[in-house]
Design a protein around this nucleic acid. Structure first.
Length: 928
RNA sequence: GGGCGAUUAGCUCAGUGGGAGAGCGCUGCCUUCACACGGCAGAGGCCACUGGUUCGAUCCCAGUAUCGCCCA
């Protein structure tokens, strides 16, 4: 801070300066100090090519607050940064770029494509890290990791091999969620459900033996009926019992299919009580098919088009088959309905709300698709992950989310981990072409159906269809020969692993695991994980499962879950809605500290937060307020400073130290319980409304008088308290506190390595706090009167004061000069009988009575109105309390302390009422 | 369909079994000596609704309505 100082804090230059300073001195590295315990947070790795959005700002602000706080508390604090390769998301971005050049990834071929992604990653990657630095994130940047760097890739392979050997990872042909645009499998949770207005179609299936008798089924997806392999009714449904075991003629085909009884699949209340079973295109039907030994019939191809060969296998009528061939689901539905109508098989259509699944990356409607994939068997992993949370070894904060976690974990399904994309960790499994001759079909796309058989030259793609019967050789390194036949005609499984597979290892892979590194030994299990609710299942749950399985220990102790940031209207922020608040813009506009303070203040547990720009502005003002307090203190402290024990200092000093101690305790308690909202609220309240509004005002007189005996002690208190406040505030507002701290006399490189304030019982001073309340009541009441009587604030007054309470009367004497200076008035302390009898307005606050001179020509009507209103309010309250106090039931059952308190309040209210009434009378006489 | 949560000042949200709070906004006064990104004062609320428990309910319980989220 150079002199003369600007009136307002100018954040941009300051932030740059201290950001560089921190980096230069490597202050973000964990410090080895004696008896210091480790405290470690691993960052939720942002997408390597992403850029900072408001959710990141929130997430990382909270982490930084924790890590700065713990660091100042003397912990060996490590915040481990890194980025995620974000398989599908990143691949989509690069593919979009290629498309603009008129190319596809197949045009490039796999190696060139991957090279291209790496290039993009190096170009635009880590951009977000610079933005995190701008936010003040005190990560140890020298430990930066990336999910696809060598160490982490090795961990991924090792885990895959180990879990495969233990039978936890397996390969199988299952119905999975398939994105026909990304052309890859997805896990269950990568599908977002969206409610849409669908139609329920009632379709008549004629009995095979009695064509005039129909069984009507209800379905929302008529186009899939071509792949039906049965119809199901409920076994106890009297309507259909006689049909069970018979067969129906499947419309639009030459097939007949059986009528089955299935109590799991069929809901008698739904539709007609009869449903079609299409095992290849519906998850429930697939399970039903397995129960009844039905062969799935696939009729959609990998792009969710009607598959000619599938239709042929399904024995679809020739002309229809030709029309349907390669049609989209949507078009096919229309055609099928049309054909049904022609044959009078469509009985009715009714509106029916339904949910469709969409790809979480590209929002395309997802199709159930039968294909061979790799899976993680989750049951054995979930059990200990449930245990860890139930026993409290892992705490989920706020507690409410614990049930969400447990509920999900208890009904978890196996995790499909193979993705048919190219960007990611390629699965460390190889196949021998010789031994698997019958199980391989090399095709032109990443995964195909057996229908489009044309073999593509190897130079273009290594892609192939590998049936679930193929025998993989799973190994961390590429095998040179087949262990079975000794041949060397091997090739690697083309699939890559789900991005979240590597993410699930993040808390330990980043610390060097599987090596027993120093970092791993020291910092694992990590301390706290800070994350949004949206990735509780994607990430947190899987880290717990993998962490326990692979390291034998939980990956973290506390999981703090924060809410989502929405816009001021409560809408989810999205680029398409144009309601995105860009944190970087706001940081430039209002300062990073203001944005950080806003983020923290909104982080109250359990609900989404609406972000209005005015809030950031408000906290920018707060920063300016602090800045100006600093200017004031600097202006008045460049001389003497007389250290003295707290209890020998002037009243205001003793009071503010007592309050500061209180603030330290409250802020610490709030941070201890992850109540960032409370921590910021205490800081704001204390710094602005106690320190600036009152303490600085109270300190002014002695600083401004020449040779005031208290000035030395007050200067000392100002510096001591303000420096402490900077440290207390530093975790939330690192930049401005550093700037101020550095501009005051100091020792050390940075405020960020100074100790966080701790409770100082020597500062507690109950009497000064009581006295302050008295002073505050006196001053506020007088000011109210001043406003009421229209007396300008700068006009000196001769006021009178007294208290009905003897202790207060004594205190008033001590406070007299403070009151006089803050009110710019002279105060006469005397009982009301000694006050002038005329033109004095009496005001009441508790035991206090204050007399204000009334100008002869003032319009008193308004004042009378006001006093009357007060009397009314007090009267109401008083009579309510009186009736409570006199109620026998209350006297008998309420806590004695409550009874006493109520009685005391009645007495004091009665007193106030008496005084107010007498004021009213006085005013009446003045009016006459 | 199942589960969870919310409903408090104009707005955004804290909060507590016994006197309704903050920030922003609004109104009035004030260029006063750190700060007009400021100071001082003020207005504004049957704490969603209906019952129950209790001496006492904004708070606990049940139900209703509306909204939101997660899961299927």
């Amino acid at each position: 801070m150079s002199s003369p100082l600007d009136k307002t804090y100018n954040p941009t230059a300051v932030e740059k300066k201290w950001g560089a300073h921190w980096a230069e001195h490597k202050l973000f590295q964990p410090r080895q100090t004696e008896k210091s315990e480790p405290f470690c947070i691993v960052i939720p790795p942002p997408n390597v090519t992403g850029s900072l959005h408001i959710g990141h700002a929130l997430n990382n602000t909270l982490q930084d607050i924790l890590i700065r706080w713990k660091r100042m508390q003397g912990f060996q604090a490590l915040w481990l940064p890194g980025t995620d390769h974000a398989g599908i998301a990143t691949q989509n971005v690069v593919e979009r770029q290629l498309k603009e050049e008129g190319l596809s990834r197949e045009d490039l071929g796999r190696p060139a494509f991957i090279e291209r992604v790496w290039k993009w990653r190096h170009q635009s990657g880590d951009h977000i890290l610079e933005q995190l630095k701008q936010l003040g994130a005190s990560c140890d940047w020298e430990r930066l990791r990336f999910t696809m760097d060598d160490g982490l890739s090795l961990a991924v392979k090792k885990v895959f091999v180990q879990l495969f050997e233990e039978g936890i990872i397996y390969r199988g042909e299952r119905l999975i969620n398939w994105c026909p645009r990304c052309l890859t499998a997805l896990s269950d949770i990568e599908v977002e459900h969206e409610d849409v207005k669908g139609t329920l179609y009632h379709i008549r299936y004629a009995l095979a033996d009695e064509p005039e008798v129909f069984l009507t089924v209800a379905t929302t997806r008529p186009e899939t009926l071509l792949g039906d392999t049965a119809v199901a009714v409920h076994p106890d449904d009297p309507r259909y019992q006689h049909l069970i075991g018979k067969r129906v003629q499947l419309p639009l085909t030459t097939r007949t299919i059986p009528i089955l009884a299935d109590s799991i699949l069929v809901d008698r209340e739904f539709g007609t009580g009869a449903v079609k079973i299409t095992p290849a295109h519906d998850f429930n039907d697939f399970e039903a098919g397995e129960r009844h030994g039905l062969q799935p019939l696939t009729i959609l191809d990998f792009k969710a088009r009607m598959d000619p060969l599938g239709l042929k296998n399904a024995m679809v009528d020739q002309t229809l088959l030709a029309n349907l061939s390669l049609k989209s689901v949507k078009d096919a539905r229309l055609l099928v309905i049309e054909s049904l109508q022609e044959q009078e098989l469509l009985l009715k259509e009714e509106p029916h709300p339904m949910a469709v699944g969409k790809c979480y990356r590209c929002k395309t409607v997802v199709e159930p698709y039968l294909s061979p994939q790799w899976f993680v068997k989750t049951a054995p992993l979930a059990a200990p992950a449930i245990d860890a949370v139930e026993t409290g070894e892992i705490r989920i904060i706020p507690e409410g989310w614990q049930n969400n976690y447990l509920g999900w974990m208890r009904q978890i399904k196996d995790w499909c981990i193979s993705r048919q994309i190219w960007w990611g960790h390629q699965i460390p499994a190889w196949y021998c072409r010789t031994c698997n001759k019958e199980h391989l079909l090399e095709t032109g796309h990443a995964i195909g159906t057996t229908t489009e058989g044309g073999v593509i030259p190897e130079s273009v793609t290594m892609s192939c269809f590998i049936t679930s019967d193929a025998k993989p050789i799973v190994s961390e390194t590429a095998p040179t020969q087949c262990p079975q036949c000794g041949g060397d005609n091997l090739f690697q499984d083309p699939d890559v692993l789900d991005t979240w597979f590597s993410s699930s290892l993040w808390p330990f892979s980043t610390l060097g695991w599987p090596e027993e590194t120093e970092d791993f030994k020291k910092f694992y299990p990590t301390s706290t994980l800070v994350t949004g609710l949206d990735i509780l299942f994607f990430w947190v749950a899987r880290m717990v499962m993998m962490g326990i399985k692979l390291t034998g220990q939980v990956p973290f102790r506390d999981v703090y879950i924060h809410a989502l940031v929405r816009d001021a209207e409560g809408q989810k922020m999205s680029k398409s809605k144009g309601n995105v608040i860009d944190p970087l813009t706001k940081m430039n506009e209002y300062g990073t500290d203001a944005l950080r303070f806003t983020m923290a203040s909104m982080a109250s547990p359990g609900r989404d937060m609406k972000l209005a720009e005015e809030r950031i502005e408000g906290y920018r003002n707060f920063a300016t307020k602090i800045w100006n307090a600093a200017r004031f203190i600097q202006l008045h402290t460049d001389g003497t400073k007389t250290p003295s024990p707290p209890n020998s200092r002037p009243f205001a000093d003793r009071w503010i130290l007592s309050r500061l101690n209180h603030a330290i305790c409250e802020v610490t308690k709030a941070l201890d319980t992850y109540r960032f909202d409370q921590a910021t609220s205490y800081l704001y309240q204390f710094i602005w409304h106690e320190y600036c509004d009152w303490y600085i005002e109270l300190a002014k007189p002695s600083l401004q008088r020449d040779n005031d005996p208290d000035a030395g002690a007050t200067r000392h208190t100002l510096l001591e308290s303000f420096e402490t406040i900077q440290r207390l505030l530093h975790p939330v507002m690192p930049f401005i506190t550093e700037e101020i701290w550095q501009s005051f006399p100091h020792e050390g490189l940075s405020i960020m390595t100074q100790p966080f304030p701790t409770e100082n019982v020597d500062w507690n001073d109950a009497q000064s706090e009581l006295d302050f309340s008295l002073l505050q009541a006196f001053v506020s009441t007088t000011r109210t009167g001043r406003a009421l009587l229209n007396i300008p604030a700068n006009q000196p007054l001769a006021i009178f004061g007294t208290s009905t309470h003897s202790n207060e009367s004594a205190s008033l004497k001590d406070l007299q000069t403070s009151i006089e200076s803050i009110l710019r008035s002279t105060l006469t302390l005397a009982g009301t009988p000694d006050w002038p009898s005329d033109r004095i307005l009496q005001l009441v606050a508790g035991n206090l009575t204050i007399g204000l001179p009334v100008e002869p020509n003032l319009d008193l009507q308004q004042v009378v109105k006001k006093v009357k209103k007060q009397i009314d309010a007090k009267h109401k309250e008083c009579s309510r309390l009186e009736s409570r106090v006199s109620s026998p039931a209350f006297r008998e059952k309420a806590e004695p302390s409550v009874i006493q308190e109520s009685e005391e309040r009645v007495i004091s209210l009665q007193q106030e009422l008496a005084l107010l009434t007498s004021s009213e009378q006085q005013l009446g006489t003045m009016l006459r």
